[in-house]
Amino acid sequence: MTFLSKFGLAAALVAGSVTAASAFTACQVTDVGGIDDAGFNQTAWKGLEDVKTSDGIEGRFLESQAETDYAPNINSFIGQCDVIITVGFLMGDATKAAAEANPDQKFSIVDFAYDPTIPNVVGQVYATNQGGFLAGYLAAGMSKTGVLGTFGGINIPPVTDFMDGFVHGANLYNERHGTEVTVLGWNPESKEGLFTGNFESLDDGRAFAQNLYDEGADIVMPVAGPVGLGSAALADELGTDALKIIGVDADQYMTDTEKQHVYLTSVLKRMDATVTQVIKSAMDGSFAGGLVVGTLENDGVGLAPYHAFEDAVPAELKAEIEEIKAGIIDGSITVGG
């Protein structure tokens, strides 16, 4: 009897197997936020999907559930993929180790710059302090309480770059308008601030936003991937007069459709654009190790439309934002930090 069942199982297994086509394959290893985090990982995956649609390549992904998954997940793709994209600063060491052990495999990592560069790895980094700067200026202009808040996932540069820019942007607003808007949650000088310690817990996102709200903040920018969705839920309950959220990574008005009305704007980090660029370079043979930097100038970072707040943001403030953006691009305004 047992034998029969085993045989049946084997037959079912064989029937289900098919040979894989040998198309160009791009693979992505996500961080623990998961592929559907409405932000960080999802944006990078969108870049891959865009090439999938336009050029008919194969795309695969592996979700990391813990830091211990990074190395085995990367290893599972080695030799199976034309280019492996790892998403996240925390995967820096694992990606480096895999790239050095497999010099013929093309890699690209989002949010990590190797110094010195590794010949088979492209690092994708973003001047998110430029986008954060615009958001900080905007928020300072929109705040009624004169208090802004921000918090991060963990204290690493790809997170704190946003927060640096946010604080400096608010400071510039103070300088120009003689206001005293303060930003809670981050001190760009001491590099200390408010961190949830994870990129997963929506409850933390809610609790941290609540704390900032209790301290008077009426606009909060969470920089912690899906954690920010918890903050958006709180803003939804309190009403946007009391609390507005600034999204990060993706245009969260588009990705968090249920709570879209709470987003004043989002600081865009166009990982999709750079991922697409890297995959295409691997396809046409121009792939070379090094760095791709997203800036305001090349649209690698930016500010999302105001969507629900289109009418609420005064025209003068909008004009100022445009002027500052141009100033950052031509170098006449420095974003500090």
Partner: peptide
């Protein structure tokens, strides 16, 4: 779909 299920078990 069934094919994917079979493939996943393999």
């Amino acid at each position: 779909d069934l094919e994917t299920i079979g493939r996943s078990f393999v």
